[in-house]
Design a protein around this nucleic acid. Structure first.
Lengths: 234, 234
DNA sequence: AGCTCCGTTTGACGCCGATCAAATTCCGAG
DNA sequence: CTCGGAATTTGATCGGCGTCAAACGGAGCT
């Protein structure tokens, strides 16, 4: 695929991988054949290159999205133009679903943090489907519930924990449960993780180096943990 | 009513005021007569005195609640026992609705910040009703959407604004739209407002005194604003 | 390999807000 | 009205993290 095509929105067929991601999201998992067909009928696939905007705060909301590949930043600006991430959406995450019953304008900016593929659903169509089909309204409720719980977690994390603790929590949430050594790989740039944790990139970097004495080693995107149990006590 | 009765849970009839509050919540507004009756059938009224716990994090979730009067704190604890409020629920607010489709355990503590009256709905019953009745699932989606949007606002506020700015935002959201002078009355203690804004009480107090030079006067629970427009520029 | 761009790290600094302590005010009970 | 406990304010101190600047490193390109 040539560069110019990659750079712009385009309606494509779903790849098999994308389809698999889509079917596992709470938003589409568990839909009956008929509902699924009707959802697909109102879906288009959108590809965006890094840093392209999906939508901006205040714009008229006419679609919700599901991430198929890549990552999307949801963020807001203050008067001086400083950005604060509110959520980072990865494969399987849905965003702007809160607008099905929550207003007619986007409430934050959405931007491709890297090259992304999105499933785009017409908001009005989903609204109507959710009124007709019970399994769709159930999917919407499930999706909203998860999103709400994770956002509340985010508030609690911001208010309760310091930067190294938040980083430790992030690592622990992605480590095997037993207490031994572990290794994980970040699925995105560190600056994205920083935003996700409500930190400046420099603060994330310092948090990692503070965790070195707890046995956390970082090389590139790979994070190695000597003792998972020890990390729990940070 | 004698003190001992006020102190304990009790199943009571709805007062007219409570009923009016209940009917205006997104959770019950717009329900058809039949759905309304079925919801009421699974509802009990609970009264709690100040500081009593509604539920605790980790407990088995068997009910969701709607505040009829008073305020409820939703908060979480860190290992050292420090508390962080995640949400303050007032009359008309619903909490723990995210557990209809979001898990079987409460994810945070809920405590009466003062004497409160709550409508308590059996979670399993609401789950079943939401599957059957479209208007109920719609009410749940509306309620979840609002709650989600306000929680995302909370994250953005925490990350973008300083204490005086957050206080200014709070005041402005409750002031008449025109730019002139205004006066509002806090519906609760300042310490509760502090928690709601993610601040220590001392920090809220200092934020108020920082706003004095912008024409904000505080006496008890009454906040007077000389020039609403000026406050927007903080 | 060498170069370049961009992401990351490190250092220096300052501000914001948490914390502890003490003073003061508020409010309800008697 | 007075008292006592709780809420709030004020002061002092300190740690955490944002910001700016500069050094460093890695990935892709030629």
């Amino acid at each position: 695929m040539e560069a110019t095509t990659e750079m712009m929105n385009s309606n494509l067929k779903l790849t098999n991988r994308d389809r698999a991601v889509l079917m596992k999201t709470p938003f589409l998992a568990g839909l009956s054949g008929n509902s699924l067909i009707r959802m697909f009928a109102n879906m288009t696939v959108v590809s965006l290159s890094a840093r392209k905007s999906v939508f901006r705060e205040g714009e008229n909301a006419d679609a919700l999205y599901c991430v198929l590949s890549g990552y999307v930043r949801l963020y807001r600006l203050n008067r001086e133009g400083r950005e604060a991430d509110m959520r980072i959406c990865g494969p399987g995450d849905t965003f702007a679903e809160c607008l099905i019953y929550g207003g007619n304008q986007y409430r934050y900016n959405a931007q491709a943090a890297e090259a992304v593929t999105l499933a785009r659903f017409d908001l009005q169509a989903v609204r109507e489907l959710a009124e007709q089909e019970k399994d769709i309204s159930k999917a919407v409720m499930t999706s909203l519930s998860r999103h709400l719980l994770s956002t509340m977690d985010c508030v609690a994390n911001d208010r309760l924990y310091t930067a190294p603790q938040r980083v430790a929590n992030y690592i622990l949430a992605r480590c095997p449960v037993d207490g031994g050594p572990a290794s994980i790989r970040l699925p995105f740039q560190k600056s994205l993780l920083a935003g996700m944790l409500g930190l400046a990139p420099e603060a994330l970097s310092r948090a990692f180096s503070a965790l070195r004495k707890t046995g956390v080693t970082v090389r590139g995107r790979v994070i190695q943990v000597v003792d998972v149990q020890a990390l729990r006590e940070v």
